[in-house]
Design a protein around this nucleic acid. Structure first.
Lengths: 219, 219
DNA sequence: GTCTATAGATGGATAGAC
DNA sequence: GTCTATCCATCTATAGAC
């Protein structure tokens, strides 16, 4: 690399990585805010400040870009949940109580959604993927139940007296609570309550969710 | 109307109404199953067995058709909920308990979703509208909180000891439980539970939801 | 690698014949 | 009122110049 005409490869890689990352971030943000079908490749490249062909060059296609964002974010989120569940198990001789299990599921997306957290937008992206995702993404969601199985198993161990059928249904209700935490729903609630509710206080929201879900689960 | 060449106007009106109704039904079904953006005017007219121009002739535009379905179905659903809430109040001297209030909110969409009910698809349409709706529809949802205010007020009367802020948050959690009742989520739950859960039994599902929500609300 | 220009496909809307 | 043919806008993807 003594030839001054040859650009430092690390610089080239960094520039390439920077463009790719700019596209990734802009796409995640726009998809999360406006929905998958309402955002065009032109919108993304304009937001990222790169040329129109960048999406296809770096990701292959719009759908492939969407899928890569989806895969990375769900993977990161579920890993964090699994880690918290593991820690809860370690604290309780392998048998954590219901509330600790639910906290391992609730806390990661709530922390991400903190107003001063960079990942705030990622939560909205993931929630949107659940209802607007492509067939490919829904297939992944449908088949990748492994992380949910860990939580279902932990709940059954915590409440061995409860029929498994009941555990699954109550888990379904708990999931509904999480998936409903969208910007639009918070806005509506804020409007309805005359400004009483403030979703910015994630610690308070986590406690509210846990109080409700724990009581419901142990009904 | 003695001239046999003049068609009976009621027949004409019926034919027109039949075409319009066919478009309405096909659109509701396709939108509910595949999402708003994934269904074209061509898909709708093909499904309805009418010509391509029918949508614009009878409804003005694709968006206007979408909005008309949305308006009619949400109106019908909320009227049924209001009626049940009114009946619950009549049964309890104007102060129904939490469980009866929640039942008035839960029961109508669950009854509609019964497998042998024609309105089964309408519930899915409404749920989809909440996340995929146009700006116009979301604006209606945001502003038309009147029916939710009735339920919030009833809950506050049932639990005057509870801070209003808590009532709103718990109502938010309850709404999440309802909005999560989609085909895709039921499929996923069915897959996860190894077939233990059967959402076809709406009476059993209503009881499960009420047990969970009542306990959560009274936590 | 970047960017422009454009191909190729799709969809909403409409004119005009019947 | 119905239906066909078509216009026009938009979008993804890509070829080719630099």
């Amino acid at each position: 690399m003594t030839d001054p005409l040859i650009q430092d490869p690390s610089e080239t890689e960094e520039a390439e990585a920077a463009t790719k990352q700019a596209v990734f971030n802009a796409a995640e943000r726009l998809f999360a805010l406006h929905g998958f079908q309402n955002v065009s490749v032109r919108d993304i490249t304009a937001e990222a400040g790169v040329n129109l062909a960048s999406v296809n060059y770096h990701f292959g296609s719009k759908d492939a870009l969407l899928f890569e964002i989806f895969r990375r974010r769900t993977s990161e989120l579920n890993r964090e949940r699994a880690r918290m569940l593991h820690e809860a198990a370690a604290r309780h001789d392998g048998k954590p109580p219901v509330r600790d299990i639910l906290e391992a599921y609730f806390a990661p997306p709530l922390r991400w959604a903190n107003p001063d957290n960079d990942r705030r937008i990622s939560v909205q992206f993931i929630i949107r993927a659940r209802s607007e995702g492509t067939a490919e993404m829904r297939e992944v969601l449908r088949n990748d139940v492994s992380h949910l199985e860990r939580f279902a198993g932990a709940l059954m161990a915590a409440r061995p007296d409860l029929p498994k059928e009941d555990v699954y249904w109550r888990l379904h209700f708990v999931l509904g609570m999480v998936h409903n935490n969208r910007f639009a729903e918070f806005d509506r609630l804020h409007h309805l309550s005359g400004g009483l509710t403030r979703e910015g206080d994630v610690d308070a929201l986590l406690k509210r969710m846990l109080d409700f879900a724990e009581a419901g689960f142990n009904a």
